[in-house]
């Protein structure tokens, strides 16, 4: 066996903090890897990159990246990022957080940020439950799934995130899994170039919680499900692109939507130039 001296990504990581806190097989580490790859591909100077997150497992991700990182309060990361981006539109702000953080407690903020078309790159790692608190069900848990707080099966309908974000006014919408790393990397790199609100959903695994409770023996079993049941369709009808683990319907992935419109910052700059008297 060849003992590695240092991982090529170590320069992009706060490597003294590794190994990280995530469970064996957790997809968040893969997303971090893909994000760093995309960052390197995009050529954006790392000084201009800011990572923001809320609370939860995924929200710990920025703390491992060697860039300016902001670990804020639960669900409020989008509002925090909105303030930061408006204050300094030159920053490249990536918001990497979990489904619970962005869509359950932070649902109000994310839909308004998309409506305002704030130029943020939002990456939502969706593990279908609240991982950090022990696997309770949330707004992304597929109906019928067993979780720590839905022992008889989740009785609620789950959100279909790409459909929702397109309707809210996002400029770019895509969905991949933690297994489709190369496509994910390309999507993240593309989202850096999109002017406006871009949204990428990454379906991930939560081996000790959602996975264990829903028939996946280990992390690999759920990844294998993604490998066997995912279908890439960039022109998919998002209305029917909800996620299910029942096995009778494919999980639709793809670069679903890309249409730019003026951002908040474009219009604001125009107004400021028109009315300012301080020069």
């Amino acid at each position: 066996m060849i003992q590695g001296k240092g991982h090529p990504k170590d320069a992009f990581l706060r490597s003294e903090r590794l190994p990280h806190i995530w469970c064996p097989g957790c997809g968040i580490g893969i997303v971090l890897n893909a994000y760093l790859n995309a960052l390197a591909l995009s050529g954006i100077p790392r000084e201009e990159v800011v990572l923001i997150s809320g609370i939860g497992c995924t929200a710990r991700l920025p703390g491992y990246a060697n860039a300016d990182s902001y670990h804020t309060t639960h669900g409020r990361s989008i509002a925090f990022a909105t303030g930061m981006k408006i204050a300094n539109p030159k920053l490249h702000i990536s918001l990497i957080s979990g489904d619970g953080d962005l869509f359950n407690i932070g649902g109000n903020h994310i839909m308004h940020a998309a409506r305002r078309n704030i130029d943020l790159n939002v990456i939502c790692v969706n593990n279908f439950n609240y991982g950090m608190t022990g696997g309770q069900h949330g707004s992304t848990t597929p109906a019928g799934s067993v979780t720590a707080s839905s022992p008889y099966g989740n009785l609620e309908q789950s959100f279909n995130l790409p459909y929702m974000m397109k309707a809210m006014g996002a400029s770019y919408v895509s969905r991949w899994t933690a297994l489709h790393v190369r496509q994910l990397t390309r999507s993240i790199a593309k989202s850096f170039t999109v002017r406006g609100f871009s949204f990428i959903e990454v379906l991930s695994v939560c081996p000790p919680n959602f996975g264990k409770d829903n028939g996946f023996a280990d992390a690999y079993a759920q990844m294998q499900y993604f490998r066997e049941h995912c279908e890439i369709d960039n022109n998919a009808d998002l209305h029917n692109a909800g996620v299910t683990f029942s096995g009778d319907r494919p999980i639709i992935l793809g670069d679903f939507y890309h249409k730019t419109r003026p951002t908040f910052h474009d219009i604001e700059r125009e107004i400021i130039e028109r009315v300012r008297v301080d020069r």
Partner: peptide, 14 residues
């Protein structure tokens, strides 16, 4: 050539 940093591994099997 494959290089390992075994002290970081959590044996996820991927």
């Amino acid at each position: 050539t494959v290089h390992f940093i075994p002290e970081r591994c959590k044996a996820c099997t991927y």
